[in-house]
Write a protein that binds this DNA or RNA. Sequence first.
DNA 1: ATTATCTATAGATCTATAGATAATGC
DNA 2: ATTATCTATAGATCTATAGATAATGC
Lengths: 223, 223
Amino acid sequence: MSEGSTAKRVRRSKAEQRAETLEQILDAAEYLFSLQGLHGVTLRDVAQRVGVHTTLLHYYFQDKPTLFEAVFARRASVTSGRRMEALDLYAAEAGDKPTVEGALHVFLDTDLDLYIEGGEPWMNYAAFCARVSNTPEGAVLMDVHFDPVVLKLVSILKRALPDTPEEDIFWGYHFVTGALMNTLARSGRIDRLSGGLCRSNDFEAVKKRIAKFMAAGFHALKD
Amino acid sequence: MSEGSTAKRVRRSKAEQRAETLEQILDAAEYLFSLQGLHGVTLRDVAQRVGVHTTLLHYYFQDKPTLFEAVFARRASVTSGRRMEALDLYAAEAGDKPTVEGALHVFLDTDLDLYIEGGEPWMNYAAFCARVSNTPEGAVLMDVHFDPVVLKLVSILKRALPDTPEEDIFWGYHFVTGALMNTLARSGRIDRLSGGLCRSNDFEAVKKRIAKFMAAGFHALKD
DNA sequence: ATTATCTATAGATCTATAGATAATGC
DNA sequence: ATTATCTATAGATCTATAGATAATGC
């Protein structure tokens, strides 16, 4: 016996096994939390989806909130890191002539590309994040993981809009992130509202429009 | 005994008593649901906040989801109706020359004014709605209660932007509602991000900027 | 008489812990 | 020997129903 034909009991090292199980748990939790939120999902739901016993979740995670935060943190560092790099690169390239649209393209497209290219797990994470962002406790998680990138974006926007009051720039960002989160949520509402003309999961369509749309908004605030 | 001095046991008719208790239950549920969502709130939490026994909630409402929908519906008709009227009036006044900014001002300001003038209960409802809008099941409630107003707005925007593809107008609305919902959510994030420069509950500040900002966005989509 | 409110309780979960078992690791 | 996984279970809730009590209504 051992590996091969049955394809079921491939012998894995403990480290591998641990890593695989952890990822499966996080994927399942991510999916379920994205639909029902922290309180709408039981550890049993998650365990069943993975096909393990509930108590195993306690072996890997202290409790439910800890699991929730782990789901948030896993991909937050990826998107935050990528966007930070991309913004740094853009700031260097643009020198003292950055544009609002340029900065927004980098900030938004880099994020949207992750979901577009990342398949189902990343799409689940998108909805998970949107849900988190909308609540008082969730917003604190956003602070912890995303403040640096957002403040980086804001600093570039300030240079692109030297005559715009700082307050306006923050409100502009508030609008941008609202539009982005509404996209990530994929509630299905725009599909039905538009009679099928637009689709919630068509992030390409959003990517094509959002930076230009929002950049014009920032410029309009000056007037 | 009876009315007066103690101010506690004012004699009320059954109809009054029913109406008062119902409103108290809805207010308490609205507040709690706005913070924790359907699954994060127990009927006991609601009952305790009202100061009645849990089972009384079952006397007035069939079950928890029914209570949740009642909370949603109570004020939805108010804001939907008001905005519908205001949009009809605007459409009549503007004749065949409506503007994007004009229509958005009516649609958004009429809503924001309700929260600004309605005090705490309306502010709780705002957060409640934002939370609902962000989820697949919640979005269906939005459809039921808000499709008519939104489609009215869209029809005016179409006349204001005859050369813009319908698809773009729907995506534009998607961005607008995202920004609005992010406002209604009052997550506190913009407060901390801006170092106190902006405040989540400053709906006046949003009202001052959002229509102009979004109108410019719509116009930019044509280019 | 009717309706608002409370008492008592069944039945179902849910979280989290203690301790057993079955794998992998040297 | 160590670590991954499961069994058994305590203790706490939570929803929802049945039936009692205390008000208001004529």
